[in-house]
Design a protein around this nucleic acid. Structure first.
Lengths: 364, 364
DNA sequence: CTGAAAGCGCTTACAG
DNA sequence: CTGAAAGCGCTTACAG
């Protein structure tokens, strides 16, 4: 395929044409040492004579040699690499935590290998397994995604500790094959909606995720219903519209809600991204937020804080969750291999977009 | 290291303990065929008897066999993979384009291998070369980053077409080693600031990126100065503050500007993210945007559109640029190997955050 | 401190 | 249509 002509540049010394891909054998030959010695230099082994090391390093530099990672991974039994598999590159919710995780992994003297999986991919657990094998990972942390159909046998066979963080899997079996770090989305959503109710709202709309979106956000709908139920507010399906993780779908869902003239005074939106879109939709129609309509989101992404008015939301301790995932991973690795299932608490942030109406007292 | 006890699950047939990692040899043995045949099945070669193929596929499924990618990459001379190296995982500006690129690559019957490089990494070009070698890439597209010190000799030696999109490198040499797809940031910024001037503003603040941030955004400052200059407005360094790609630094930069009491009526901000932070800072102090202060950003990210008021900005045709990068890549690959340097036009979006002041006519 | 050799798990001519 | 063998570029005991 590579039929285009490129004049190979010559090296400085004696017109020897530069090989397309310098490999360890070439470096060994050019340095006048054995292959093993080059490998030792490459891997920072201490048992190489200083002069030898320097000579080799000089040749490596001169020829721009970069070791082939595929070969290294193939040969190495275990890399000092922890994989991080993130679901969806568009989710600002996860982008923040990755850095914290990387630092925490580095503190343990390991490296992070970051891998993003498409939002539309349905085979998250397969990708995870593939990643572990390919990179010979010491451990894997998965952020988001759907692991309901995970093959626990295969995970166990891999003997590679895995931590599922904020993923769709509520594992309660007695098999001890992976750890999980989550919040309880249903409870967090229930508390948020109760906060709304506490502010005197009774007609509360909901913008949920489409049913075919298989993520933890689905449980937020459960929380919405529970809150209504516990405060004796009848559930009205007319008050519910669905979106899809984006500003635009939140915007449109709000338009549909408003079109119905439902005399709502508040809307609970299952992600901050959609909440921003929803707020814009209302304000564009001249509806004042929060004076005429309160809006509450979920996640705690930075953007919600900068929006005018700032969006009240359920803050997930993402960074702590990420760091905890790393800690658990190394615990499993270094100690008894007993996995843990952890639920973090969330925090409701009452910001500008939520306002009290009427004079009614808090029902609960 | 993996000292934790895991009871290896047994396979269904006859208690043979499942190997930790099933490989192609095992599959061959279990299927009663040769290794080459398994490989052929794996790679969808047509020259395998139907029954044989089915038998092999069944064994593969039963043992959850996943081929080792390191081995494949090592052996394969060319993968049908195009790499995409993205600078910074936090940049919403790039996240949008990746999907477009992926689709375009798929249309050519290739796969995309996505790789993110840390925002703080200084060795973008080295990472690029490493990626090409490791994955035996057919081509590479780089989104963002600093390639000023790129080793053109090595790139040429690799014989792998490379397209730099929105990266810091203005290559005008006669060597024909890579393509580039960019906008002219200086011109685009100049036009944006002229739009502001056309609206009657004379005291125009600027929030730029810190000087040590080595990205194309630096040129936006050049454009700001040029616009002032061409309209005979003196450049006042007091009106310039710097941020760092985030809401928060934009917010703080605006606070510093406002603290100086400079009687500005407009601010040009070199990224939309910072523009949103800046707008919030002003509005929090009771300054009405745009009635008392106009704000203009740069990039055209979605959030700028949903913010209240929506942020006027310079829209980069990111998706088109991404798609063009793919097209150029395949052109280079299939045809003459002649690289191209392309500059896209930008579009100024006059939205809610920019308002006319005074009665002065447009100076240019 | 150093080198020759085996082998990681695949793919790809080559021979049948 | 199928299999045995070579080899991709490394790392890692092993022997010196």
């Amino acid at each position: 395929m590579k039929t285009f002509p490129v004049t190979l540049p010559e090296t400085e010394e004696g017109g020897e044409t530069m090989k397309q891909n310098v490999n360890i054998k070439d470096i060994a030959r050019l340095s006048g040492v054995g292959i093993s010695t080059v490998s030792r230099v490459l891997n920072d082994h201490t048992d190489v004579k200083k002069e030898t090391r320097e000579k080799v390093l000089q040749v490596i530099k001169e020829y721009n040699y970069i070791p082939n990672n595929s070969a290294r991974n193939l040969k190495r039994s275990v890399s000092k690499n922890i994989g991080v598999l993130v679901k969806g590159i568009y989710n600002p919710f996860f982008s923040k935590v990755v850095r914290a995780i990387e630092e925490e992994i580095a503190r343990h003297d390991y490296s992070m290998i970051l891998h993003y999986n498409s939002k539309d991919a349905t085979n998250d657990s397969e990708v995870a397994i593939e990643l572990i094998k390919e990179k010979k990972l010491t451990g894997l942390i998965c952020l988001g995604g759907d692991f309901e159909d995970i093959d626990t046998k295969q995970i166990a066979a891999l003997e590679t500790p895995m931590v599922l963080c904020s993923t769709m899997v509520r594992y309660s079996g007695d098999e001890n094959v992976f750890s999980s770090v989550n919040i309880d989305d249903a409870i967090a959503a229930e508390l948020a909606v109760k906060e709304i109710i506490c502010c005197g709202h009774r007609r509360i709309g909901m913008i949920r995720l489409r049913e075919d979106d298989f993520s933890v956000c689905q449980y937020r709908m459960t929380g919405y219903k529970r809150a209504l139920d516990s405060c004796d507010i009848p559930y009205d399906p007319e008050l519910v519209e669905a979106g899809d993780y984006t500003f635009e779908t939140g915007y449109k869902a709000m338009q549909r809600l408003l079109d119905k003239q439902l005399d709502m005074t508040a809307v609970f939106v299952s992600t901050d991204l959609m909440a921003v879109g929803a707020a814009r939709a209302a304000m564009e129609r001249g509806i004042k937020v929060p004076e005429e309509l309160s809006i509450v989101g979920f996640d705690g992404i930075e953007f919600a804080e900068y929006f005018m008015p700032s969006i009240s939301t359920v803050m997930q301790p993402v960074e702590e969750m990420g760091i905890m995932s790393v800690e658990i991973l190394f615990d499993v690795l270094n100690n008894d291999g007993v996995h843990r299932q952890i639920l973090f608490d969330t925090k409701f942030l009452h910001r500008e977009s939520l306002r009290r109406v009427g004079g009614e007292a808090c029902p609960k």
